[in-house]
Design a protein around this nucleic acid. Sequence first.
RNA 1: CGGGGCGUAGCGCAGUCCGGUUAGCGUACCUGCUUUGGGAGCAGGGGGUCGUGUGUUCGAAUCACACCGCCCCGACCA
Length: 517
Amino acid sequence: MVTLPKVLGLCTLRALLRGTKIIPRPALMSDILTKRADDHAQWYNDLVLKADLAEHSEVRGCMVIKPHGYAIWEKMQAALDGMFKATGHVNAYFPLFIPRSYFAKEASHVEGFAKECAVVTHYRLKSDPEKGIVVDPEAKLEEELIIRPTSETIIWNTYRGWVKSYRDLPLLVNQWANVVRWEMRTRLFLRTAEFLWQEGHTAHATKAEAIAETERMLEVYARFAEEWLAMPVIKGLKTPSERFAGAEDTYCIEALMQDGKALQAGTSHFLGQNFAKAFDVVFTNKENKQEHVWATSWGVSTRLIGGLIMTHSDDHGLVLPPKLAPTQVVIVPIAKNGEQLAAISAYVEPILQGLRARGITVKFDDDDQKKPGWKFAEYEFKGYPVRIAIGPRDMENGTVEVARRDTLEKQVMQVTDIVEKVEHLLQAIQDNLFQKALAMRERSTRVVDTYAEFKQAIEEGGFILAHWDGTAETEEKVKQETKATIRCIPLHGDRTPGTCMVTGAPSAQRVIFARAY
RNA sequence: CGGGGCGUAGCGCAGUCCGGUUAGCGUACCUGCUUUGGGAGCAGGGGGUCGUGUGUUCGAAUCACACCGCCCCGACCA
C-alpha cells in the first residue's frame, strides 16, 4: 500500500496514474469465469450466464432460459416423458389460474403456499393521461385467481367429475407446465419465481396402490438422475417438517453438489385421501360402497439443470453428460483456405453419416468466420462432450484428433473405426461423470455420533449420517444452531437403531443431515 | 422486508469523490489486406436518451431528492 500526502487528493492521484499504460488483456472465458474454489456461488452464476444457459430477465426473480439451456431441458423432458409413458401415464393440461376458494379446501396445503402466491385481481387495463396505462378499478374480479404454485387443487376439483367407479381408476396423469412461487430470493435455475416442471397427479382405489405409485415414481426419478444426469442420488423420506403441504408422506431424491451442499432433486408425494376429501372425489367400489380415492403427486423441475451444472462442471466451464448434451459431438475443421475446407468436408461426411446413423448428435462447424482456437474454447466452455478436430495433417495420416470434455484429454485416433470409438467414448464419459460424482459424494459423506463432531463436520460440508430422536424439536434445534437440515431418512443402507446425537433418546436409524440449496 | 453492491455502446468496465474539451478503454460489430492444429495481426470505420424523473447551476454521467430495476448476504422455500 502506497501512502500519499493527503493534499494530493484522489483526482490528482488518478491524473498521475492516467499516464500509466494499461496492458490490454484478452477476454478469455477462463478469465471471466470465477474459480469454483474462490467463490462457488459466483462461479455458478458466471457459468450459467457465460455458457448461454439463461439470463436474468428484467422481471424480478424471473429468468430467460436461452436456447442452449432450453435444449438441455428438452432432452430432460424427452427422457422423462418416455419414462412416464412407459409406466402408463398420459399427459394433460390444466389451467394456470386457480380460483382462490379452491385453496381454502385443504388446510395444510393453503398454509404451505399462501405466503408465496401471485394473485390476479383485475381483468382489464385502461389508458391514463399521466401513467399511460393503469389497471381499470372497475374491472375487479369477484373471486381472485391464484397463479398456480402447484396444481393439486384445480386438478382434484377436476378429478371429481372424472372418477365415479373403481373402473375409472387408476387415473395416471402428468402435466408439463410452468408454476409461480413468489420467492424472496432467487437463483438462476435453482430457485426462480416462475419455473418449468412436470407434475404427475394420480388417483387410486387403494392406499397400498397409491403408496406403490409414489415409490415407483421415486424410482423413476432416481433412475433418471443416475442414468441421464449422471448424478448419484439417495432415496429417502422427508421428515414431517420438510413434507409437502398436504401430503401424508414425501419421498425424495437428494443429491450432493461439488461444494458440499445438498440439492433436493425430485419429490414424490403420497397424499392419502386429503385432497379426495377436500374436493369430494369418491368412487363406487366393487361392493357398491362409496370411498374416497387415494392420491399421489410427483414432480421435477428446471432446477435439475442447476443440479446438473453443480455436479459436473469445472473451472473451464460447463460439463454435460452425453445423454443430455444438446449436441454430443462437434467437429472442427482446420483449414487454411476454401479448397482445404472442401477436402475436409468430404473427409468428414462419412463420419457425420456414421455417427448420425447411430443416433449420435453431431455438428460440423464449417463456419469460416471463426478460427479453430476460438471454436475450441467456445465448445469447451459450453460443455460439448466430444470435440473432433480435423486438419490437413489428419487427412494425410488418416487420423482425427479427439478431445473429451470431462477429462480434457486429447488423443489422435485412426479414422477407420472412428464412429465406434466415439460411441464408446460417449458411454465412457457418461460413466466417468457418474463415477466421479459418486466418488465425490462418498468422500463427502461422514458418519458421526456426537453433536460436537457433527458441528465440526457440518462446517466442512457434505452428507452427515447421524442418529436423530425423531422429534421436530431436535430437528429445529439443529437447524437453528448449524443451518443443517435433515435431507431425508434414507430408505436403503444401514438401518440399525441407535441414540440421538443431540438428546440421547432412542433413534430408529441414521438420517442424512446437510446444508442445502 | 432488513443489510450491502450495482445501473455509462451488444458484453466487461473507467470516469462520479472535487460539476467545465467532442464521454473514454477493452472486447464485440463493419470494411480491407494478411492469417487459420487452443479465443489471430495491422489499418480504417460505425455505434451512447450515462436506469427514470424532478431539482440546484451559466453548465450535470458527476451534486440533492424521489423513484425503477438487477445482483449478493439474511429471514421464507423446490
